[in-house]
Design a protein around this nucleic acid. Structure first.
Lengths: 340, 340
DNA sequence: CTACGTTCAGAAAACCTTTTCGGTGAGTTT
DNA sequence: AAACTCACCGAAAAGGTTTTCTGAACGTAG
């Protein structure tokens, strides 16, 4: 780092000259090829270190056809989903052979096409497409010369590979937890019916209730993903069905609203009524009183898996197609289990 | 897009052949160089379009020494700051000549060094370093052969260029708003004293109070950036100083806590007491009851500026050094001004 | 008709690395 | 001593683009 003159980057030629060999030999020595005597290799390695040589990935990529880069194309305005997915991908790509181009399409198809072209012209080796809903999104098609994996939002084309949270099992998981806590009169408040996430979780809830021999208390309440709706719906529910002992909410935001209403009505959480949500959005869950139990979607895991699939496809493995589901994880906090 | 055989990308040679010229002429024609007859240029352009040719940026970069990429090195785990900054940077880099490598160091110096090396070996043209606090962070040093701009968290080396929110003026802005709303008995609850953001905002608050001929009610309350602290501090404050007519909070999280306490104590917001915060984190502000007035840090603007500075440096302009401040923006909602 | 200038096209070098293939020298076998 | 194998190294091509320089064709002026 000390001697980095901005003038010119140090090239393999410099290393070769210092080591007194040809560039061919230097290349082979540094890349662990055989056909190089050990003593020679040593000389080259030392020279490379003394000059702190790093190979130019452009030249390398030009030849190999591989650039060691992956495009992450997101429409997730807030970065709530894409950041954990990016972190998972970074983990999977591991020891830094791969870097990620992040492009934000901001939910705009034109911009998405535009970024797509830019990424392809940069010869990314693969593509991860992140949506902000779990509803299927339009496929980018099959004219793309690199492997594509859809993360969070699956593709509407079953011949693409998609990886998405398993919201049905998440719904089941939530109910099973409530039942395990001894709750039997469970209501469900969730977000927009237009969202697959809301419907899938509700399906899982119904299935688990049925399996436990229980019935949902009140109607399945769809409306919007907001605290306001959580407050209003909880007020209606608790007035109409005072026997309720658990309110399962479709998101942490809704949970926060339900918690507020419970407090306003003088119902204690969790003793009197339990509350839990989905997403495990920490700024909401850990700041609530009491702290909110939630189902974490394991997005980092999802990102890791997506990256692994891209990797596998690059190595020529057939990664198949269809939608792969990532299970959620129960995070228990004080809103369902009283603190000791 | 129709005819993209994965087999081999279309190269300038193909275009030249189709147009019946040499690669040199084709290159000149497509890049708007003179020394090409108009009719020839036309033929080449048509050929390029028919083959949907896109130049290989690796080859181009290999020669030019420019890659058209910028590294965004962040330690912002949640992406709360980096996403708007990324969006601003994308705006500034504009018509897609530039793409962004996003690397998440996760607050780990080792990982940061590691990513830094990777980015440099990829020959990024510039670097934007994003921190998660406004406190000065260690400089990356001057051995870096590309322009570096520090965003959000400034560098501790004044010879670097940093762009950071102007928290002092944000604090002033907040108090001026409260005073304009007729509030005169203002208290301030904020986060950890170790954070420059907390201290700077507090300084601005004091300055504006002084300018308005007012005194802070109660002590300057530093502790932590959480709703819990907001609740507890507000309870203490309102008990000790019931005359308070405005609680200015150091973050939206703290505001949420203060709102809750006000509600618990039966104080109405905003009629009886106004509450406002900083950051304008929408999931917190727009879901509160009433919705929270806040100071937005204009992070997207900050990202745009950072990108423009990198750009300018690339064009050989001296971008100077020191810290540049981006003003915040008042977002008025129902917690300070009663809804009509 | 010669000298010169202008306009445009192409050949070739350059960027940096990897890989193939040919070659050198030493050692081994017959 | 000749033929052969083996280990090792280097020359050169390849990858796609840009730029410089040379050169050809043509027109114009003397």
């Amino acid at each position: 780092m000390a001697r980095s003159e901005p003038g010119r980057a140090v090239t393999l030629t410099d290393v070769a000259r210092l080591a007194g060999v040809s560039v061919a030999t230097a290349s082979k020595a540094l890349n662990g090829r055989d056909q190089v005597k050990d003593s020679t290799r040593q000389r080259v390695v030392e020279a490379a270190e003394r000059l702190s040589f790093t190979p130019n990935p452009l030249a390398r990529g030009l030849l190999a056809g591989r650039t060691g880069t992956v495009g992450l194309l997101t429409s997730d305005l807030e970065g709530r989903f894409v950041i954990p997915i990016l972190m998972g991908a970074e983990d999977a790509f591991g020891a830094g052979q791969v870097n990620v181009f992040l492009c934000d399409a901001r939910g705009d198809t034109i911009r998405e096409q535009y970024h797509l072209r830019a990424l392809l012209s940069r010869r990314v080796d693969g593509l991860i497409v992140v949506g902000r809903q779990t509803d299927p999104r339009p496929s980018l098609g099959h004219a793309i010369p690199v492997p594509v994996v859809y993360a969070y939002a699956p593709s509407d084309d079953p011949s693409d590979l998609s990886i998405t949270p398993d919201n049905v099992s998440a719904g089941r998981l939530a109910v099973e937890h409530l039942v395990a806590c001894g709750r039997t009169r469970i209501a469900h408040i969730t977000g927009e019916r237009a969202y697959a996430a809301a419907r899938d979780r509700a399906d899982g809830v119904q299935a688990a209730l049925h399996a436990a021999g229980l019935e949902l208390v009140g109607d399945m309440m769809y409306s919007e993903w907001s605290e306001r709706w959580g407050r209003d719906a909880a007020a209606v529910l608790l007035a109409r069905h005072p026997e309720i002992d658990a309110v399962l909410c479709g998101s942490d935001q809704i949970s926060r609203g339900a918690l507020d209403t419970a407090r306003d009505l003088g119902r204690t959480v969790p003793d009197d009524v339990a509350v839990m949500g989905f997403d495990n959005w920490e700024v909401l869950t850990t700041n609530a009183r009491p702290e909110l139990t939630s189902i974490d979607a394991n997005l980092q895991q999802l990102g890791r898996t997506a990256a692994q699939r891209v990797f596998a496809a690059l190595d020529g493995v057939d990664i198949g197609s269809g939608t792969e589901y990532v299970a959620g994880r129960l995070v228990i906090r004080g809103s369902t289990v009283a603190r000791r």
